Simulated assay, not measured.
Amino acid sequence: MPEPKRAVSARPRRPAPPLAQSHGIAEPVAIDIVSARIVFLAGAVAFDLEVELINAQARAVEGLRPALTLISASPDQDKWRAAFHAGPPAQNQSGPLDLAVGARVRLPARRTIRRDQLYVVEHGGRPMFVAMLLCDLRWRGGLSLHRFGADFLLGAAGRSARPGPIWLDRPAPPALAAIRYVPPLS
């Protein structure tokens, strides 16, 4: 006698988590890097990114203008980050966008760093660097203007969640890792 067929329940697949998650931190707009890829060009290094913004507030975000820039991690990175976030709105911003409560939007972006702007470290006679993505958000909320920012280290994916160096004497790494950057307390 043949065995009766068993019902197979198809579980919906959970989407892969973003490369870098900012959830769990009290923020008005959560910023996550969903995907990142690096391309070595003749005189520059390009990063193809997808950044997700999620309105985590109990009110709508109106006129959101996100600005993204890429720098090379260096001893001066905190000075550059502070200037970027404190300065006037960046020229490369997109928007304006409106986000309802809980709404999310994904922004594709390509950012490049010229090779002469990379902070290159030699390790064992081999050149390497790590990149930083700086994200600045500005929007209207009622009669007020609001701003929020978050920054991420970008590097080669490895065994740990922490990004590794991007070697300039090898082909571009097939996978990138990103982690939220929090500056040291002064």
Rank of each mutant, 00 (worst) to 15 (best):
P2Q: 07
P2K: 08
P4Y: 09
K5M: 08
R14A: 14
P17T: 15
P17R: 15
L19N: 05
S22H: 08
H23R: 13
H23Q: 12
E27A: 10
A30H: 08
S35M: 03
A36Y: 01
E50D: 07
N55D: 05
Q57C: 11
R65S: 12
P66M: 09
P66Y: 11
P66K: 12
P66T: 11
A67M: 09
T69K: 02
S74P: 07
S74E: 10
S74C: 06
P75C: 08
P75G: 06
W80E: 07
W80H: 00
W80D: 05
F84T: 03
H85L: 13
P89F: 06
P89C: 10
A90M: 10
G95Y: 05
V101P: 06
R104C: 11
R104S: 12
R106Q: 15
P108M: 13
R110Y: 06
R110M: 13
R110C: 15
R111L: 14
Q117L: 08
L118S: 03
Y119W: 10
V120Q: 07
G124V: 15
R126K: 12
M128D: 04
F129A: 14
F129I: 06
F129D: 04
L134E: 00
L134N: 01
F152S: 00
A157F: 07
G158F: 03
G158I: 05
A161D: 14
R162H: 12
G164P: 05
P165T: 02
R170I: 03
P171D: 10
A177T: 04
A178G: 15
P183A: 05
L185H: 13
